[in-house]
Amino acid sequence: MINVVDQRKSKFNRYKDLRENSNELLEPAIKPAKEYGVWDRIADVADEGSFKAFEFDFPETNPLEFQGYVEKKQELREEENCHDAIVAGQCEIGGYKTVLAVMNKKFMMASMGMELGEIVCKSAEYAMENKLPFIIFTASGGARMQEGILSLMQMAKTSAVIQKFKDEGGLYITVLTHPTTGGVSASFATLGDITLAEPKALIGFAGPRVIEQTIGEKLPEGFQRAEFLEEHGFVDAIVERDEMKKVLTKLLKLHS
């Protein structure tokens, strides 16, 4: 089971000050929004002091016995203050209680392995049990190669759990941020009841370079960007970072 702990630790507050500069980071193709981290995101959308992180106790995973993988993860856990490439917990947004998860691309490009898949599932199950909505900010390079076939299986696992959560009446909101690709875009990221996206976020199954190599030509400008997906009918709305909390509050209100 999940322990819910108060995690208003130093980092949570420390990053708050950086938020002021976040607007200049909206050009993801040029500047991968490095400075705007998971905890900034949480500070921006969750009501002040309301976020309580889920804590998990997973055994170390390295199914392919891939060299250096465990060390890499341990190092990043320290640096990023999270289990794997995701922080999940419970919070209030505009006074509405919800489960909130934010993926952290600074952690191995937020690729999905067993741990990340498990955190997404456990968060959805927690929301199911407690009859709460589930909001997830996605960002990912795709499947975690270092876990081989078991990373692929996380796609089926997370999709099945999310589907069950939705079938039982749960509200599932995804916010696609830059970049959301590969195995994550082809599983829980694109299964939202409501799908939001950040301006200019790169969203797609195959990476642009792979597509260019396959078709042998340059991709048109704006290809696979949030605006392109909106035009082709795959997102409900594109939402600016400044407006995010307001929009999420409204959506929670509309479903309360």
């Binding site: 999709s159 690709t181 082809a186 199954f205």
Partner: peptide, 26 residues
């Protein structure tokens, strides 16, 4: 693998696969 092409992306390759994973589970 699924086709990494321009039209495939335009018409929602990611959504189509995700939809199958979710629906097959039920």
């Amino acid at each position: 693998g699924a086709y990494p092409g321009l039209e495939a992306e335009m018409y929602g390759q990611a959504q189509a696969i995700a939809g199958n994973l979710a629906a097959m589970s039920t």
